[in-house]
Design a protein around this nucleic acid. Structure first.
Lengths: 204, 204, 204, 204
DNA sequence: GATGAATGAGTATTCATTCAT
DNA sequence: CATGAATGAATACTCATTCAT
């Protein structure tokens, strides 16, 4: 007879919010933000349309929260702020971490990639993305130099492209590009990719 | 005031059709298919909404025609069907051709990438894309083998990823990744990327 | 920790009810009935939405109760049912009472006026309003006759209009029409407004 | 077979626009802005909901256009900018004009009055209303002085109230307050209302 | 008595598509 | 061939009301 405690309410709110976000993520990633309607989200989540607005101000807010949440769970899970030079081992571990995070956040990544191609959807997604990605570039760059690259800028471009491309393939066609194999091949290629005195002259 | 010949009419039809498609491509690529309305297309093209339906059955058909047309203008411009083995020089030329085509069809590529991430939009876009891309994979593969790769499958994965990633960067952030530099770096990396007896053991 | 007596409960109920009504009056008067939501009322009153329905059947009932209550507190505070003829002094007192009541019930009056213009909102508000106002008309009429008006019907119209208009101005733009000054001016005009043998001929 | 001329389109647009505005005015005036839905307007006008948005950006814009249009057709129909002093005859004519305009724009006036009580609905309606009304106040004031009022400010208040009140009654209960009679009575009262040396001392 | 999660009907608005001219 | 008025279904969002606790 007594009303629910605020703790109970908090739990309900938390659970529902997550349910909505997960459902929305699934649909946004699969069909795109614009092609996904609140009705679809509500239906799939098994709730009423109205309830969605009990938890989120707007469809846009769901997207924004998904982005923030996605960034948090992906980028902030490893500390990229230490300046120390990575050993080969540490670097490999770092790359493997990236693959692991991709594996665990496939939907988020799919959403991110689609937003990259239409940054207008979420106003400063690109900026955030660039910011979040910057430390990674920095890390790749430092590592390349520490490994004796004679053209770290160029190597960085290629290495970044390779990683980004690998990610894209894994998201778009995971059945054609098995995650684990791709991971090994990429890791295996890194050393070869670095331009050193020895290999830089060997023009293709 | 002699009546226009049917030839003239045909030309007018053809021009209008192209005008609509170009305009639609621009808007689809920039804002996405769903976020672009027929009104916007018509307005930007300087024609009436109704006229659009004189040339296309539906908004979807514009997209489909764009895809087909895009594939045609991109993939079929070089003949990928010859089985002969490519020399290094021919191969480099082939890669450069790809960059050139990207440069000339940036909008198409942007559209393609966004469709890759939302294949539902155009029902069998992914299939077409895979089909059109297959000969290229084949060519990369043959080339890798001809160059003495001891793991052509693995090298193919990495090489594909690198190219796809380069393309994505060039589309999404051309100001950060200058086209020409990227092209040189990629080409320069190919030889290093191939796993041969000499370099395969060098574990990172 | 003895259980509250039913008397205490009643008092709590009464207080909550009044709290809700006051809050609703404020919002209805300021923003209109339709533009005011139950959520806003509850929030402003510091209670839950649900509780509102513990005291009122519906939003409409709050309005209706406000109207009834408003009529009660305004019209029934002075006894209009005595038939005796008013002296000048008594009449002036009566008019001053009206101004006083307006001052003390500005929100109610604002609400009343807006309902007058949209009687559909509360079904028979107009009827009630006319009924409640009737004795006042009667009183004005009797007074005008007792003062020697040779056209009491006409004078009544004008006097009513002047009073209603004064009230409207005081509600809508109290800063431009200071209450006390308006009151004096209106009272001062009443005698001049009555058409007597002496002034009726003076055509404007 | 040939397309409609732009003249034909213009006429259609003009007519439909007026139809929508008239219908909206009717409903806004009767039921209020918030209580009137676009569906109702469309239904009553015999058109589809969508068409409304072919002619107006939003529901709010319909209201704003109605206000502007209403002001235009009411206030600007007589020139209030001449500074010359009005004779009695001219003044009476001016007042009669006001009643005529009220008669011809009853719905507009009803809408205006309801907006007066909820200025939030249309952001700066009150300001416009005050501005448009200012010249009329000025005219009343000048006239009162020219007629020898010894308290023109006070008389102005009362006269304004009388007019505004008369208007309100005519809008709200025209069957109880017949327009023509009210008009005569008001006009007849004006001279008596002016406080002169002769009548100012006669305290009620 | 009190809470706020949940619902569903309703609202303003958009947009692909049709069609008379 | 060309126009844009017209439609109707769909969309994001609101809100009075219910109800389990």
């Amino acid at each position: 007879m007594s009303p629910r405690t605020s703790k109970q309410f908090d739990r309900i709110r938390q659970e529902k919010k997550e349910l909505i976000m997960e459902t929305a993520l699934e649909l946004f990633a699969e069909n795109g933000y614009h092609a996904t309607s609140i009705s679809q989200i509500a239906k799939k989540a098994g709730i009423s349309k109205g309830l969605t607005y009990n938890y989120f101000e707007s469809k846009k807010e769901i997207l924004d929260k998904l982005i923030t949440h996605g960034f948090d769970s992906i980028f902030e899970s490893f500390d990229l702020n230490h300046d120390s030079v990575l050993t080969e081992e540490e670097f490999i571990h770092f790359i493997r971490e990236n693959f692991r995070l991709l594996r665990e956040n496939l939907k988020h990544w799919k959403l991110f990639f689609s937003l990259l191609l239409q940054p207008s959807v979420s106003d400063n997604f690109s900026k955030d993305y660039a910011e979040k990605g910057a430390p990674m570039f920095q890390m790749l760059f430092s590592f390349l130099k520490s490994q004796g690259s004679i053209d770290p800028e160029g190597d960085l471009m290629v290495l970044s492209a390779m990683l980004e491309g690998a990610f894209l393939y894994l998201i778009v066609a995971p059945e054609v590009f098995p995650m684990k194999i791709m991971e090994e091949k990429v890791i295996n290629s890194i050393s070869r990719l670095i331009s050193t005195e020895n290999n830089s002259t060997s023009k293709l």
